[in-house]
């Protein structure tokens, strides 16, 4: 019994360190706390197990998740071409609408104007979404692993139905 719990604890710890997404790491850390609380219980220390289960598994997990939600930065690459600097009224209203989306989702909007082609941005930069303007038609590119993909689609279909959402694959 105790061997199974110890192996589970080690696996959870390794997964928490090795994972790609911070959110998954937080969940693995909660799993680690639960496993180690069970181990304490098997070693006849119910007091310590109770404290570990409450503090490690409940309080710190929720606090980490809240912290991740608060400090998330949503990077918007706005691709302008040549003489069009993205300062006209239509572009500004689209950007304002995207900022409203960020505020609603508790994200921090960061807008970067660029003239690079889309393939270069995908290759070289950390981005959340890329906005492209071509002959008065706006396209929004979003990566398939993005967490906000469904929320963005719903929001844009309500607020700005003229924008196409295109999904970038790996």
């Amino acid at each position: 019994m105790i061997q199974v719990a110890l192996v589970l604890v080690i696996l959870a710890a390794l997964a928490a360190v090795q994972t790609r997404y911070l959110r998954h790491g937080v969940i693995y850390l909660g799993l680690f706390s639960l496993g180690i609380a069970f181990v304490y219980l098997l070693y006849n220390a119910p007091d310590v197990a109770l404290a570990e289960a409450i503090i490690g598994s409940t309080l710190s997990t929720v606090l980490f998740i809240v912290a991740l939600q608060k400090y998330k930065i949503f990077t918007i690459y706005y691709r302008v071409s040549g003489e069009d600097a993205g300062q006209d009224a239509a572009s500004q209203s689209v950007i304002k609408s995207l900022e409203k989306f960020c505020t609603k989702q508790e994200l921090e909007a960061q807008i970067i104007y660029t003239t690079e082609p889309i393939a270069d941005i995908v290759e070289n930069h950390q981005f959340s979404i890329i906005m492209n303007k071509q002959n008065m038609q706006y396209d929004v590119f979003i990566h398939e692993n993005n967490y906000k993909i469904d929320a963005l689609k719903t929001y844009l279909s309500q607020e700005l139905p003229s924008i196409n959402v295109k999904i970038l694959e790996d």
Partner: peptide
């Protein structure tokens, strides 16, 4: 029983 001030306080804090 097992428990005490600290653990109970943490539960109430939760």
């Amino acid at each position: 029983t097992p428990g005490g001030g600290f653990q109970g306080g943490a539960i109430i804090g939760a």
